[in-house]
Design a protein around this nucleic acid. Sequence first.
RNA 1: GGCCCAUUCGUCUAUCGGUUAGGACGUCAGAUUUUCAUUCUGAAAAGAGGAGUUCGACUCUCCUAUGGGCUACCA
Length: 481
Amino acid sequence: MTRTVRTRFAPSPTGFMHIGNLRTALYAYLFARKNHGQFILRIEDTDRERLVENAVEAIYATLNLAGLRHDEGPDVGGCCGPYTQSERKHIYAKYAQELVSASHAYYCFCTKERLDTLTDETGNRRYDKHCLHLSREEVAEKLASGAPWVIRQNVPQEGVTTFSDMVYGEISVENRELHDNVLLKSDGFPTYNFANVVDDHLMEITHVFRGMEYLSSTPNYNMLYEAFGWEIPRYVHLPHIMKDKQHKLSKRHGDANFEDFIAKGFLPEAILNYVALLGWNPKTEVEKFSLQELVEAFDVSGISKSSAVFDEVKLRWLNAQYLKELSPQQLHAHALATPHYGAISTSVNLPLLSELLRPRISALSDIPDAAKFIDSFDGYSLSLFDHAGSKSSVQLAKETLPAVIAALEPLADWSNDALFAALEQLAAQRDLKKKQLLWIVRIAVTGHLSTPGGASEMCVLLGKEQAIERMKLSLERMVNG
RNA sequence: GGCCCAUUCGUCUAUCGGUUAGGACGUCAGAUUUUCAUUCUGAAAAGAGGAGUUCGACUCUCCUAUGGGCUACCA
């Protein structure tokens, strides 16, 4: 009988959520959901020096934003709590003792100075099992004297350990390459190596999803499982997400965390979708997946072994796909909720602006640039009127603009249709190509090469008064210039 | 240095011994268009190198190169 699938996401609260972590969480979540299992959140706060305030809250917030609901965790409880490692300190101590009793671990009293002498010429340090050979009496004596101690794993130095990973397959390591890792630190907290094994077992984790940096230490974990007589979980090691071919995505280099991308105006579902595809292929040509669709499509066999470079350009494309599917009202709501509408003067029809912007931006942060013409109009370069594609020029603009103003000023109906009809008619009258005239009007009214819509749309957006005024100003500059 | 892992278009990837090596983003060129954008069509673009195994290798094996990871009382 197979056990219920249980996966976990076990971040340390050392800052915000970076993209690699998010993907690990995603895969663990997808796998659990796909297999009707449980997804557990565990906080690994055993390194007291690296704790960052509010980092736990940030983890909850991010998971929530991403829609990765956990079934068990510090905030929601569950059968196998507590889910914060610092609250489980006594548990690790107990299990460490158990290992000591069975000679799978031992007390070590070596000082940092002694340890430093163990560093070889290549800069490597390898513990020499010095304290393993202490007699029971000597250990008791040192313990009683209050000397600082740690508990180390007693790794056999002969033989080979082989394990199987669901992504990387069979991997073998010579035991003599393995170290007597510290299990329990002198502050009484467990190391990651130890806490992980104990917790994953106690929390009945069946599938361990984690970065491939743990591949080399997996034999150590397995020896621990074996020493306890516990069932070894299935491993799913994940390739790294890279900034470029050489460098891992790291928060130290600035970007690359989920919150930043949200702030830049990417939709959570687009980020998740993109990240899911980095290192995993769904075996179809479809690229757009909702979270639910990812759950259905997810399969470990599609995870690749090699690392993937994070490509923001493709993320932008995917995000644009999501943006286009939003209704104008939805996009408007999104835009208003971000700082990107902050700088835009309220003199224009903002909902209309949102609608015009929708097919033209790939992230909400594109808005300020796209809407710049609204608040910066003076002093644009008149050479914008010169455009070969539409056979337009400053000279032509100078000749035509008075007629445009004359035609539009009396217009009572300032709708897009009415404006477009009027301009079309004017073009015919003056024997101009529609394109020529529209180019002139659009530039005259916006002063920008690229705008979120055509001439008539820009007139509607700005409103009659401002549109006419801008045309007059543009004309004035041409005449005087 | 030692050990572990990886290597297909610029990027993400498909191919799990026999394909004109496919798709997507990006790029470029055309078409449509009320600018820009969207949309549509098309093009350029790849198996790190070398030995094997095989009738036949991108695919299997080995070597080399390159890149990454581990080698902490960090996770």
